[in-house]
């Protein structure tokens, strides 16, 4: 019972990070029909930029408190990633807007390699220790469940950001223009909407969420390196597909469900496989889910419309 509750808590934590990243995939897909496979790298750039910023802060302002350090690190990483998202769209994807759908997909994979390579040149191939600014030692267990301050922070911050995004998309003029553009670029332009600007804004917002996710991810595990974006990126993509790609609520639900499945799977995989596999095989659950969803329910949990794009 303790294991079950513990794994549910762990699943919610990792799931909320997946959800934040999945939103970036699903927003871009919703408006362009493009799977931006470089989205995971944005997370990595966010984490490494934050790490770099923390290194500089240590030299120039060693007396700063941990929360102030974290705030400044985010204050640098988020705009850097937003700029990166903007440039990605502007330089790589915009000119392929009317190209056959394979071309932007391959380009996205190319952008992903490019960013990993640039990060490797800048930060090397080694694993870096990411400072544990928020304590990672568990608090007093509540009914046998251990939870750390950083985990609580992750869940709260993710929930706040998702709520903010929902308000933005559903209650503001910009959000309305994003939804209109997602439905029909031509008609949106007939309303006076600068479609290119709206698509740019979508990339920027998604990249901002990924930057926050990256910093939280690195804080939770205490490490950062040039390839750290790949696996969470792929899992968040799975989460977006699971929820119904193009659907914001679906990305959030998919992220949480994937986190839970993965965490529970890791907790029980030894029993499930009669001791053949251990918890280091937990990654297989994401891909089993991806396979099952694509075979049996390609529109995902919340997706009702069958899209022929991308």
């Amino acid at each position: 019972m303790d294991i079950l509750l513990q794994q549910i808590v762990n699943g919610l934590v990792v799931g909320s990070v997946y959800a934040l990243i999945a939103l970036g995939y699903t927003m871009v897909y919703g408006i362009l029909g493009l799977i931006n496979f470089a989205h995971g790298e944005v997370l990595m750039i966010g984490a490494l930029t934050a790490l770099q910023t923390l290194g500089v802060l240590e030299r120039i302002a060693p007396d700063l408190g941990p929360l102030a350090q974290l705030a400044i690190a985010l204050g640098v990483a988020v705009p850097v990633c937003m700029t990166l998202g903007f440039l990605m769209e502007r330089l790589a994807y915009r000119r392929l807007r009317n190209a056959p759908r394979l071309a932007p997909l391959i380009t996205a994979i190319g952008v992903s390699f490019l960013l990993q390579t640039v990060a490797m040149i800048l930060w090397g191939r080694n694993y870096h220790t990411f400072p544990q600014l928020i304590p990672t030692t568990p608090l007093e267990p509540v009914s046998g469940v251990f939870i750390t301050p950083v985990q609580i922070t992750i869940v709260v911050v993710s929930a706040l950001m998702m709520a903010g995004l929902l308000v933005l998309v559903n209650r503001t003029r910009l959000g309305r223009a994003m939804r209109a553009t997602a439905e029909n670029h031509r008609v949106a332009s007939l309303m006076g909407v600068d479609v290119n600007a709206i698509i740019g804004a979508t990339f920027v917002i998604g990249a901002g969420l990924a930057a926050v996710a990256g910093v939280m991810f690195a804080s939770n595990y205490g490490i950062a390196h040039y390839a750290m974006g790949f696996l969470p990126g792929l899992k968040a993509f799975t989460a977006a597909v699971l929820g119904g790609i193009g659907n914001l609520g679906g990305a959030m639900l998919g992220g949480i469900v994937l986190g839970l499945v993965e965490s529970l799977g890791a907790g029980y995989i030894e029993h499930l496989s009669f001791g053949f596999l251990n918890s280091s095989y937990q990654d297989i659950f994401a891909f089993i889910i991806l396979g099952l969803v694509l075979i049996f329910r390609p529109t995902g949990l919340l997706g009702e419309r069958v899209s022929d794009r991308a």
């Binding site: 003029r173 309305r176 223009a177 939804r179 949106a188 309303m191 006076g192 909407v193």
Partner: peptide, 16 residues
């Protein structure tokens, strides 16, 4: 815009 409400459609008309 079939997925927007009627009022949201009208407000898109007033976007500028």
């Amino acid at each position: 815009f079939t997925r927007l409400t009627v009022e949201e459609n009208l407000r898109m008309g007033a976007y500028t």
